[in-house]
Amino acid sequence: MSPKGRHAAGWWALILPAFLLMTAFYVAPILQVLAISVTEPSPGLGNYERLFTSESVQRVIGTTLRIGVVTTAVALLLGYVLAYRIALAGPRAQRWWLLAVLVPLWISVLVRAFAWVTLLRRQGLVNEGLLAAGVIDQPLSLVWNEFGIIIGMVHYMVPYAVLPMLSAMREIDPRVLAAARGLGASRTGAFLRVFLPLSLPGVIAAGVLVFIFSLGFYITPAILGGGKTLMVAEWIKLQILDLIRWGLGAMMATVLVVAILATLAVFSRLVNLRRLFGAGG
């Protein structure tokens, strides 16, 4: 081997352990899901046929897509406003705003779902407060339904929406805005015709990210949905742990993974995960 080749071999050796572990304990189990979906209960595409024939399969996919779209839309809207505010803030203020986004991002999903239950259930703080204030005379059903799921999911997704949009907004040259104003554009005009189009790649990246995260979300919908509104992830758990229908659960998991990877592949040039997690500084 040439010295140069031996050189490269050393660097490849650094990659190898992670690669082997990832293949043996991540990729293999995922492929196992694919295998189960076409072999159980009998070999063939019987499970996938259910996508077209089973009403319950179609209903759960419909619910998941609906909740995913609503969550994405609301999270993008709130996230855009917040990112815009952060982008315009001074460096010191920016640090505080950013902290307000990053802390919720890293706080346990379970803790957050628990907090929402504490607030929103029938005897929760919101209902008690409104009852005591005389605004309502019957407790509102704020949780264990689709409304509760969306409140909790948007809460989880807003930080994921803010970070890619903020990083796109930071790349916009402020002089372009000044130029637009100097050439006579109104504030709204400069925003709508200059800032918004330039920030659009960030919006699309954020939308893709939030949407694919929403599709496979388990904990928040399971706790805040109270078992009544089923999304795909909880439905899969139900098929496998409660009904022992491995084939059907694995089929849905495969569809979920393929849908997510396909979405990501289509938008791959716009979504940069590394930038997302590096955005804290």
Binding site: I30, F217, A233, A253, L256, V257
Partner: peptide, 8 residues
């Protein structure tokens, strides 16, 4: 999604 990994 971790659910897909978990069942596998």
């Amino acid at each position: 999604p971790s659910i897909a990994y978990a069942i596998g």
